[in-house]
Nucleic acid binder design. Structure first.
Lengths: 203, 203
DNA sequence: CCAGTAGGTTACTCGAAGTAAGTTACCTCC
DNA sequence: GGAGGTAACTTACTTCGAGTAACCTACTGG
């Protein structure tokens, strides 16, 4: 008995263990908050001892960064895929926003990490999160620039920041307003923000 | 020697000491980040021993909350004063925004606290900061509501969230763009966001 | 000048991050 | 199928900082 089944899997390959650690860590960080989460607890839940976490991620901060980074990558993939079929700037923006709202709806845990915890305190985590926003703003600014080469660069940047800020904030608000889904949230952002920029781009 | 001068002031009245502690704590938190800041260092810089901090603020978290709360109160005062002379919704919003951008320009330390650090990890600090935003969104939503009783409540809330999100994000961006002062930042927000809501309010 | 207390200190405990050094399961190649 | 090499893992610490118990001292009014 207990032959080839999976009663107690030990000794996994590195990559798999790493992924598993990220899963658990994301969960624990989201549950307890970064500070209150202890490496011992994460290790225990993974079913492994603490030094393994340090082996793979170097530090508690490193583990957090790992979680954030993974979420960031997934978000970028999703967004890029979503806007790949769009043609007008308006469509790009709308589809991108929708993808974002859908992503956070599905990955509540990761999202909790990105806001509550992750702004954390840890300087490098802040940088990592800023990286996500940068990703988004750059994308938006690039879209605007590509459709109107006359627009002031600084103004385009400002607009991108406004979109990202609005979106992030509205996503948070959606948690208190479950009746507002991704589609409606997207509409709100577009309704307010798009008008403001449309006549800059078109004219 | 060292007779009646002020070489070592000890034994201050409670309120004064408390204010001094908040000053130093704000500084140290902003400098090192919440996690890296140690109560021992803060105590030392204040020129007092650690248990005094605990006497007055209960915990490290309590001290942080104290700092945030003070900043919040100051910001609210400033904003309310700024919009007191305004008559139209547009004017209220513009003056309020301007007051905010000016406030963070003058209180960089407090602002650093409110974003980088304070989102911290500490659940109650997050609540406290959310309280600030709530303050702002409520104010904005109320203004809109007072000028157009027909507007959908949910939509008014969404708009308020969008304004706050935009503003916060743009304030951050201003740090990378020193040439963009409070006035220009206000203009950007108004230009993009106002148009979007103006034709909702006016009909 | 003595008593009461607001304001203050020293010297600890305890918990969690991080680490050094050793151990065991698994694979390979003879 | 056993030696032996190594990737995956553990035990048993050190260290550092938050929080606390118990004690002290400068200034007040009577």
């Amino acid at each position: 008995m207990t032959t080839t089944e999976e009663p107690r899997r030990k000794r996994m390959p590195k990559a798999q263990r790493k992924a598993q650690m990220l899963d658990i860590a994301e969960q624990v960080f989201a549950e307890r908050g970064y500070l209150a989460a202890s490496m011992d607890e994460i290790a225990e839940r993974v079913g492994v001892s603490k030094p393994m976490l340090y082996e793979y991620f170097g530090s508690k901060e490193g583990l957090l960064i790992g979680c954030i980074h993974r979420a960031r990558t997934e978000l970028l993939d999703r967004t890029q895929q979503a806007i790949s079929g769009a043609t007008t700037p308006e469509e790009i923006l709308r589809l991108g926003l929708l993808a974002f709202f859908e992503f956070i709806g599905e990955h509540k845990q990761a999202w909790a990490l990105l806001r509550q915890e992750a702004a954390v305190t840890v300087p490098s985590a802040v940088e990592e999160i800023e990286g996500i926003r940068r990703q988004q703003t750059d994308l938006i600014a690039a879209v605007i620039g590509s459709f109107d080469t006359d627009i002031d660069v600084v103004e385009a940047e400002a607009f991108a920041e406004i979109v990202v800020g609005s979106t992030e904030r509205l996503a948070l608000w959606c948690e208190r307003r479950p009746e507002v889904g991704p589609a409606l949230a997207t509409t709100y952002v577009m309704e307010v923000v798009w008008r403001g920029v449309a006549n800059r781009i078109t004219g």
